[in-house]
Structures are given as C-alpha cells and as structure tokens.
C-alpha cells in the first residue's frame, strides 16, 4: 500500500516535471524549420503531391526503412516466440455462419484490390504502403475468421515478405549506385498528380505494402492457430 502511494507520488512528480517542461514549448508557431521546408519544397523536389508521403518515403525514407524493419522484427519476433507454442492452448469456438463464409469470399478480392490501390496511390492520395498493407492483411483476416481451416502458405508469405524487403533495400542501393545516394531518387520527379510520378515513391510504397501485408498476414496466421473450432 505504502509502496503504491509512494509510486503514485513519484509519478506525480514526473508528471509535473514533464508537464511544466512541455508547457514551455510555444505551440503553433513557425518554429519547425524542417516542417516548413517540407511544405514549401515537396512538389518541386519530389514530385509527390502528398507531402506526408514524400516525407515518409523520401525525406525520411531511411526511417521508414527502419520502421519497416521494426515491423518486420515485431512479426518475426512474435513468430519466433510463438513458434512451437501454437498447439498448446486450444479454445473451442462456434463455427462461423454461412453468410460469413460466403460474404468473405466475395469481399476478399475487393479488399485486396483496395489495399493495392491504397499503396500504389500513396503519393497522390492519403494512404500509402502501411495502410495499404494492413488492408491487404485485413482481407486475409476475414478469411481466417470465416473460413474454417484456411491457411496461407507459410513459404509463400515468407517469400513475398523477403522479396519485398529485399527489393526495398535494392531500390536504395540502386539509388546509391545511380545517383550516389542511398535511397536516392534515380527516376526523376515526373509530372505531379500523375500516377507515374514522384520517382521511386510508388515503387517503395508497393514494396512496403507487400511487405506489411504479408507480414501482418503471417502474424495473424501465427496468432490464429491458437484457436480451434467446435465440430
């Protein structure tokens, strides 16, 4: 009890400290040098009309590569730790209904397509590789939920995941070789607002989309297998 109260006090002190620190940051002023630069120069420098995308994929593309890796790691790590533990915990569940099963079959393709659309148009519209990939994974999630005994090929997932990841890095190295800078835009900016514009951004978003999609699918599969249906 005393421990808890003391802990509460400690947290209070930390909160006060942080709050008072943060309170001193003037908000909304034009202090963010870098942000202003991005807003001003995006289209000119990258050809992407979606500033967020250009920041994510070009200005801070290296971070994105890192974040993709982090996501990959999370999936891999989870897979590694859950490996072999799958069969241990079984829960019984009611089977999905017929409507569910039929409906998901039709929705699956649409969802896949939508996901692909989102990551291909990342430089033009809101969205991009990450949401796109998640939408793709959602398509598979539907099947996992609705289709009894549905499995994706583990090898296939791995293959796509690996290839997508490698392609991302390969694009980066291509930039290094062609324009002397890792992840450098070796395709030119193109005409803004066209689909085939903004240089390597769409390419990267495609790889990200595929990678995220396959990763999350794999992750879902890993987690799904802890359940079993009532027969």
């Amino acid at each position: 009890m005393i421990r808890n109260i003391f802990a509460l006090l400690l947290i209070l002190v930390i909160s006060v400290f942080l709050a008072s620190s943060i309170a001193s940051i003037p908000f909304g002023t034009e202090k963010t040098t870098v942000g202003k630069y991005y807003l001003d120069k995006t289209i000119e420098e990258t050809g992407s009309v979606n500033t967020v995308t250009s920041v994510v994929v070009l200005y801070r593309g290296f971070d994105t590569l890192g974040e993709v890796t982090v996501l990959f790691l999370a999936a891999t790590g989870l897979g590694a730790i859950l490996f072999g533990l799958r069969e241990k915990r079984k829960r019984k569940k009611e089977r999905p209904s017929l409507i569910m099963r039929t409906g998901t079959r039709y929705l699956f393709t649409a969802a896949l397509l939508f996901g692909a659309y989102v990551f291909v148009h990342g430089h033009l519209t809101p969205g991009g590789g990450f949401p796109g990939g998640v939408i793709v994974a959602t398509a598979f999630l539907m099947l996992f939920l609705a289709q009894e005994g549905f499995r994706v090929s583990e090898k296939g997932v791995k293959f796509v995941e690996a290839l997508a990841g490698m392609t991302y890095v390969a694009i980066g190295i291509a930039g290094l070789l062609l324009v002397g800078s890792f992840l450098g835009n070796f395709l030119g900016t193109g005409i803004p607002n066209k689909l085939a514009s903004a240089g390597i951004i769409p390419l990267i978003y495609i790889t990200i989309g595929l990678k995220v999609g396959s990763e999350i699918t794999g992750l879902l599969q890993n987690m799904r297998e802890t359940t079993e249906y009532e027969s």
Binding site: A7, V13, I14
Partner: peptide, 12 residues
C-alpha cells in the same frame, strides 16, 4: 520499474 521511476525523480 520502481527503480526506474525513482531514478527519474532523482535525476529531476
């Protein structure tokens, strides 16, 4: 975690 919290406070 307790240590960490105390540590932050000490640092503060």
């Amino acid at each position: 975690l307790y240590y960490m919290t105390i540590f932050i406070v000490i640092l503060v």
